[in-house]
């Protein structure tokens, strides 16, 4: 038992040191995982030829970089032969060149209210991983959700079809499929 207490003491002494050395602004691991999901989505959705004519694949974060820079770390990675670029947009009308728009769950109503849903050839992804129950009410074609202790994807096939996009068989196999909305 004496060693057990010694260990507890060591942990207590070490804790504050660890706290101090964790640098502010460091990208969180969870955000890196979320960003990896978004990157795979970009690769596994099929865009029509006219949407593939741009030099870069533009991914946009609505209102704020709620992934803490994790998606920006992936800039330059190839998406269908084009480099990924990442930027933050303030309003839906700024999303004209965005092939993918990532919307935080807390901003989803604002996005919807501002007329952000329904654009052709644009994939709207809702990040619902912080929500108690992950459902997007059809505002996004794809939702990133919590599935137990893991992250998962929900694809709204109707919203995807409205956007004129198709998902690869690999993506359809791993995602939960729903059909919601008009």
């Amino acid at each position: 038992m004496r060693r057990l207490w010694a260990l507890a003491l060591a942990a207590l002494l070490t804790g504050p040191g660890l706290e101090r050395s964790a640098a502010a602004g460091e990208v969180r691991e969870l955000d890196r995982v979320r960003a990896a999901f978004v990157y795979h989505l970009a690769k596994l959705i099929h865009w029509p030829a006219e949407a593939r004519s741009t030099k870069a694949f533009r991914a946009c974060l609505y209102r704020r970089d709620f992934l803490g820079g994790a998606l920006t770390e992936l800039q330059g990675r190839p998406v269908a032969g084009r480099p990924l670029t990442v930027e933050v947009i303030a309003a839906p009308e700024d999303a004209a060149g965005c092939r993918l728009v990532l919307v935080a769950g807390a901003d989803l109503a604002t996005w919807r209210g501002a007329g952000g849903a329904g654009a052709r050839h644009r994939l709207v992804v809702a990040d619902l991983t912080e929500a108690p129950a992950g459902e997007s009410d059809g505002a996004a074609a794809v939702a990133l959700v919590r599935r137990g202790d893991r992250l998962g994807l929900v694809i709204n096939r109707r919203a995807l079809a409205r956007a004129g996009l198709t998902a690869s068989s690999e993506l359809l196999k791993l995602a939960h499929l729903v059909e919601e909305g008009p």
Partner: peptide, 27 residues
Amino acid sequence: WALAASPTHGADYSHLPLAELVDLEVF
């Protein structure tokens, strides 16, 4: 104690296939 002095290094999960990403236990 030694851990406290280690440099920062972040993992890159984008290399993982999607099938492995959905298997990651993150919570």
